[in-house]
Measured scan of single mutants.
Amino acid sequence: GKMTGIVKWFNADKGFGFITPDDGSKDVFVHFSAIQNDGYKSLDEGQKVSFTIESGAKGPAAGNVTSL
């Protein structure tokens, strides 16, 4: 299901970062391709987001990332 969290950091040049889930679980990798907006796909440190957990090739990653 949907989770919420805070963006820990995001490197716009490399197109990835990490989200710290509100439930205290392990930080989740986020790739820019998972960001659900029409414009420039980037996130800001400290931004609140909702997301799902998808299993990627390198382990769990955030999917369906939407800013709240």
Rank of each mutant, 00 (worst) to 15 (best):
F51E: 00
S25K: 08
F29M: 03
S42E: 09
P60S: 10
D38L: 11
L43C: 02
G24C: 04
G15D: 01
Q47L: 07
D44P: 10
G1S: 10
A61C: 05
S33R: 07
K58W: 14
Q36W: 09
K8R: 10
K26Q: 13
Q36T: 15
S50A: 13
T4H: 10
G56P: 05
F32E: 08
W9V: 04
F51I: 02
G56R: 04
G59P: 06
V65I: 06
P60Q: 12
I19A: 01
D13H: 10
K58C: 05
G59M: 06
F32S: 11
V7A: 02
G63Y: 10
K14S: 06
K14Y: 14
G15E: 02
S33P: 03
A61F: 13
V49I: 09
P21Q: 04
A34Q: 07
K8W: 03
F10W: 13
T20V: 14
V65S: 01
K48N: 10
A57Q: 15
K8N: 06
Q36Y: 08
G5C: 01
S25A: 13
I53A: 05
G1K: 09
P21R: 05
F16P: 00
Q36C: 05
V49F: 01
S67W: 12
D23F: 10
G17Y: 01
S42P: 06
G39H: 08
V30C: 04
G59I: 05
F29G: 02
L68Q: 10
A12N: 14
D13K: 15
D13N: 11
I19R: 00
T4G: 06
E45I: 12
G39A: 07
V28S: 02
I35H: 03
S67K: 10
P60W: 10
K8V: 06
L68E: 10
A57R: 13
D38S: 15
D13A: 13
D38G: 10
W9C: 04
G24L: 07
G24P: 03
D23G: 11
K26F: 12
F16I: 15
N11H: 11
M3I: 13
V7W: 02
L68F: 09
S55N: 14
V65D: 01
H31G: 04
S67Q: 12
K48D: 04
S55V: 15
H31T: 04
L43Y: 03
T66C: 05
I19K: 00
S25C: 04
V28D: 00
A57G: 12
K8H: 09
Y40W: 14
I6N: 06
S42V: 10
F51G: 01
G5I: 00
V7Q: 00
V65L: 05
I35Q: 03
F10G: 01
G63H: 14
S33T: 15
G63V: 15
G56K: 05
D22M: 09
F10I: 03
V7P: 00
F10T: 02
A57I: 14
P60M: 10
F16M: 06
G63K: 15
N64L: 10
K48M: 12
Q36M: 12
G56V: 06
A57V: 11
D27L: 09
K41N: 06
F32A: 11
D22F: 12
S55R: 15
I6W: 11
K26H: 14
Y40F: 14
S50K: 10
S33M: 09
A34I: 03
K48F: 10
F10S: 02
S55W: 13
V65Q: 01
A12I: 15
E54W: 08
T4L: 13
K41H: 10
V28A: 03
K14W: 15
D22G: 07
D13I: 15
I35G: 03
P21S: 05
D44H: 15
D27H: 06
M3E: 06
N37E: 15
K58T: 15
K26E: 14
S55Q: 14
I53C: 04
G39R: 11
G46P: 01
F18T: 03
Q47Y: 06
T52E: 10
K8T: 11
Y40H: 15
D44C: 05
S42W: 15
I35F: 07
K41I: 07
L68P: 07
I19T: 00
N11K: 08
Y40E: 11
G46E: 03
Q36E: 10
N37Q: 13
D22Q: 08
Y40P: 14
A62S: 03
V49Y: 02
G1Y: 09
G56S: 10
A34H: 06
E54D: 12
Q36V: 10
S25I: 07
E45R: 14
G5T: 00
D27F: 03
N64Y: 10
D13L: 14
K14E: 05
S42N: 08
G17E: 00
T20S: 11
V30H: 00
S50N: 10
N11Y: 11
N11E: 05
F18K: 04
I53W: 08
H31C: 03
G15W: 02
S25P: 05
P21T: 06
Q47V: 07
S55A: 12
G63I: 14
I53M: 11
A34P: 02
L68H: 10
E45H: 13
G56H: 13
S67T: 15
N37A: 14
D23C: 05
S50D: 06
L68A: 10
G1A: 13
K58V: 08
G5M: 00
A61H: 13
D13Y: 13
N64H: 12
F51N: 00
S42D: 06
Q36K: 14
Y40S: 08
G24S: 05
G46H: 08
F18M: 07
M3D: 05
T52I: 14
S25D: 08
I19M: 02
T66D: 07
K48E: 07
K2S: 09
K48Y: 15
V30E: 00
G39M: 10
V49N: 00
K41D: 06
E54S: 13
L43E: 01
F29Q: 02
L68W: 07
S42H: 13
S55I: 10
G39W: 12
W9E: 03
K8P: 01
P60C: 04
S55D: 08
S33K: 10
L68T: 10
P60G: 05
G63L: 14
Q47I: 12
G15P: 01
K41M: 08
D38V: 13
I6S: 09
G15C: 03
G46L: 05
T52Q: 13
F10R: 01
Y40G: 09
H31E: 03
A57H: 08
M3G: 06
K2T: 10
G24E: 07
S33N: 08
I53T: 06
V7K: 01
A62R: 01
E54R: 07
S25L: 12
V65H: 01
N11R: 15
W9I: 04
W9N: 03
P21L: 09
Y40I: 14
E54T: 13
G5K: 00
D22H: 10
G59R: 09
V49S: 00
G17C: 01
G24V: 04
S50W: 06
E54F: 09
K14D: 05
K26N: 13
V30D: 00
V28N: 01
S55E: 14
V28H: 02
F16S: 03
S50Y: 09
F51Q: 00
G24R: 08
G59D: 04
K26D: 14
N64A: 08
T66K: 09
